[in-house]
Every structure is written in C-alpha cells, then in structure tokens.
Amino acid sequence: MVDLQVNLGTLSLKNPVTTASGCFGYGSEYTDFMDISRLGAVFTKAVTRENREGNPSPRMTETPSGMLNSVGLQNKGVDYFINSIYPTLQQYNTVFIANVSGSTLDEYVEIAEKINALPGIPAIELNISCPNVKKGGMVFGTNRKSASEVIKAVRKVYRKILIVKLSPNVTSIPVFAKTAEDAGADAISLINTILAMSIDAEKRKPVLATVTGGLSGPAVKPVALRMVWEAYHSVKIPVIGMGGIRSVSDAIEFMLAGATAIQIGTANFVEPAVSINILEGIGKYLERHGFSSVRELIGNLEMPEGFERFRPKTF
C-alpha cells in the first residue's frame, strides 16, 4: 500500500488530490457521482463579506480545449457560509478549505477572522487573483506591495494554515511567490485563470457580458505547469498546483514540477468523478514506478545536463 499523505505546513491531507475553488460548489453538488470524503481536500467556492449576485450573463463560453468564465464570485456571503453551509460540511470525512475573497483589505481580514473561529475549517485560500471583479481579487494579486499588505493583514488575524492563491497574470511568478512567502503564507496555490477574451465575429461583439474573463481548462495546462515549476524553485513553502488537470498524467506532471498537492478545476464540469479516477491512478503510478510515498514525486524532475544554472531567478 503506497503512502499518499502530504503536508501543507502542519496541515496533513490524506492524499494530494483536491478540487479547486469555484469548480466543485461546496461538495454536495458531486455526491451523486462520487464519495467526496475520499478527496484530500475540497476548496470551497469563494466567500465574500456580503451576498454577491455575480456578473451579468453570458458568463461563460467554450474556447479551444477550455472555457472562459466571468462568474464574478457569486456567493451568499460569509455569514450564510458560517450558518448554512459550514454545518453541512461536517458530515464529510475530508478537509474543507474556504476560499476567501474581497474588494478591500478590511473585507479580507474580516472574513478571515470569522472563518478562523470555525473549528472544522483548518485552512483558508486567500484569493488575490480573481480576474472577474472590478475591485479586489487580481488587483491585489498583481501588485507586489498590495499583495504583501493584504497577506500580512490576514496573517495577523488568521492563526491556521494560510494558502495564497496566485494570479498567472503577472510578469514574474517567482516575485509573487516569494512575496507571499515573506508576508507569512504557509503555502501558495496556482494558477488562477488567465485573463482572456472571446469575440463573436458575426455579431462583432465580445461574447462575455463583462468583455473579458478567465481562461481555464486543458488549454492553460502548459502555462500552469511552467509557473508551478518556477514557484517551486522560488520558495520553501509548499506549492499547490492547478491549471487544466484532467488526467492522472496531468496530476503527476504537476507534482514532478514541484506541487505538493494538486487541484482539479474545470475538468469536474465535464467528468464529475474525474478526481477519484485521478486519485486511483496516482496510486497505480506510484506502484508501477516503485515509489513508496507520493511525496517522492514532489519536484522529482530529472533536468537536462547543465541545466542547473538556468533555474528561474527568484529576484
């Protein structure tokens, strides 16, 4: 029996297979198709301070090997999360990690403080990378100073595992990975969606009501893989990798690039039970390659001879 357990700081996950925020609801949407308790963790849909209706429709369009969305953090607010959703999560034997988003630094802090008080939530994922809101989100995550400020402020009030979700819409992943680590993050997760757009040539109009949206799905995988690899070589804290994962091989590749755990996002929309297939496949891969622990995969990449000096620069 191979050892699948991984650690995000002091938080132990029974396996590295988790589901990405915004792509798995609060878990209950998937119970008809799989036993969600088998997952390493579930990252919840983003939680904001107040109820948000999200962006106008159309919010989604399919693109080559992927999709664009501009949902815009639709959720019923942190108090609803605490009173109505949190109690339902306790029945599952998996780790729930709340994805926290806001428009202002104070909003992030207030939500983090409230969720800190929930004994059943051992970690939050700080979403400073949503590309679909006018205020907050990516605005924080693409500026080094504001990213540092919001992470530090949340770190002061949040005593459990703090994961910071990074944006791919920056010129240097190492810079932002290091910024998160220095500001007190226990782990980083990446990538959020890539800012993108779609145009209807016949109508000569943008397809999405918000004009731009976030690209996800297999189309982003190679970009995400490179960024996870860069992040892994820039920080000492664990990296959670995501971006277009839909197969066992995809998941293994992210771990070899340096991910301690992986998140499955858009693929859940197409194959609701894909995460369980990937979990089972990882076990088989480890056996086939003679590994006794999944942790042996992390960053276990054989580089071309002489490549050492080409490591990504941290600064």
């Binding site: 798995f24 999200g54 429709s57 989604m60």
Partner: peptide, 22 residues
C-alpha cells in the same frame, strides 16, 4: 437555453436573474 458548463449547479455560469435573485 443559457450557456452551461457543468449542468449540475457547481460552476454558476448559466446565471439567470429572477425576482428571487440570481
């Protein structure tokens, strides 16, 4: 016939404004 991704209420893409909210 709103554009849908997941079909099971997870992705929140096929939003329709109603008198009872989204």
């Amino acid at each position: 016939e709103n554009m849908m991704a997941c079909g099971i209420g997870a992705c929140l893409c096929c939003a329709q404004p109603t008198v009872h909210g989204m």
